[in-house]
Design a protein around this nucleic acid. Structure first.
Lengths: 246, 246
DNA sequence: CTGTGCCAGATTGTATACAATATCGATTAT
DNA sequence: ATAATCGATATTGTATACAATCTGGCACAG
């Protein structure tokens, strides 16, 4: 006889919103990382047994991790055929950037109507202003640049306190990160970005929504162009690798 | 010894993008429906064994369905405690509507820059124009209204051919549908909506992006206000029900 | 009377085993 | 020689079984 035993979750703290069991979460994160890092190339077949051997786990946790990744849209699942790493072509990238643009334009507009925390303003200005005058000969670490850029955009988004929008942007960033890292970051690109970011902050501060939107559009457009170059390069490289193997 | 056997998926047709096995998909859709329909109230504990008995399936498919729903954000999962139907409070609804607004403003703006298919324009005008003059005494079926409204907005979104944006909007619509159905639809509301929809189409047709955005903002704002009333009513009703039971 | 520790029951997490299905290669017919 | 068909094999889908973990109450000490 079953008696009702479970009460509402005592974890009132919303620290971890989605908490699968540790093993599944570990597998899920590891696979996600490898997929985004192109360790498994697009179209690669993810066999369950193979992953079990690699990750030293049983099939059930692996299956659940794959199910989660399917839901995230990182792999395609075909009945009785298994999972395949989803193709990330130039078209998808374009669409991803458009979605990012849609969300961030909204954020910028709203911020221009309300206001911006002083500490965030100070922090981002302190970071980007020196980079207006970066020397053309100075080499730039792609990781540093991409991280700083992501931080800038996400910090703005977080101000409006909309978990759905923030989560969507975080997801988009993760998907684009490794391709962004594949393109070489020039000092000129850093200068341009710094200028655009500062202009966005200025526009928001003086409540000029239109200017903020215009500049953000230009900023994201530049980023998009760079990434699309990287995508096509990476795709041809992957194709060549596969051709060499086969 | 394992030899490489799997080739690229022969399903080149992208008919079903995410295709879990039929049983899991069935369970997943059924649970999703019940959650969105408030059959399982917010905070309700979804016991695996219990669901197995209800759905006449084993625990593995049920677990995978729950994992997928977790990833969709419909349930929260706590390790060794199971799944709980996620709270849908007024704040979440507000955020969901903001995200919808962000995406649709972008869609409207882009459509105003490009153009709109003639058949879509004709179809939607043919539907909404008569409803400008609906009699105040005529009763309105909520289902018909909500479906037509969703169709209008999604049809516009689909024109720009961005699968991520369309998918996000479809998801938001599904989440809000049952609450929208809970609020009574008055003839006055139908008239207002018809007017706004026609104005949006006109603005897009004459390439007036600003007017399109302004009207869309008003349109979604009206919808949001109605829904938030429904949400608070539904929540208090659910609380009363639970209090009566306990 | 109140607070702490422990135990029984139940539920979730994982592994193993078996059934269903698709793939690849060989064989056969045209 | 080419194309279609059938069977062996591997892979996925599901069920059952067992281990780990949590809940809630009861006993006992302060």
């Amino acid at each position: 006889m079953a008696r009702p035993r479970r009460s509402l979750p005592s974890h009132t703290k919303r620290a971890v919103v989605r908490a699968p069991s540790n093993l599944v979460l570990q597998i899920q994160l590891k696979l996600r990382e490898r997929i985004l890092a192109w360790h498994y190339p697009p179209g690669h077949h993810l066999g369950e047994q193979e992953l079990c051997d690699e990750l030293d786990a049983s099939r059930i946790p692996v299956r659940e991790a794959l199910r989660a990744l399917t839901e995230q849209g990182l792999v395609d699942q075909f009945p009785n055929r298994g999972c395949f790493v989803k193709q990330l072509d130039a078209q998808n990238t374009h669409a991803l950037y458009d979605m990012r643009l849609a969300l961030e334009l909204f954020v910028a507009e709203r911020l221009a109507r309300t206001s911006l925390p002083a500490d965030l303003l100070a922090r981002e200005r302190a970071f980007w202003e020196p980079r207006l005058h970066i020397k053309a000969s100075e080499p730039v670490e792609a990781m540093d640049f991409v991280t700083a850029d992501e931080t800038f955009h996400l910090s703005l988004a977080r101000v409006i306190e909309n978990p759905y929008i923030v989560e969507a942007l975080e997801d988009i960033n993760e998907r684009l990160r490794f391709v962004r890292l594949a393109v070489q970051t020039t000092p000129h690109r850093v200068q341009t970005t710094a200028g655009e970011h500062l202009m966005i902050l200025d526009a928001i501060e003086r409540k000029d929504a239109e200017a903020a939107r215009r500049t953000l559009r230009r900023n994201i457009s530049h980023s998009r162009n760079n990434v699309e170059i990287a995508i096509s390069r990476a795709l041809t490289a992957a194709q060549q690798t596969r051709a060499r193997k086969g």
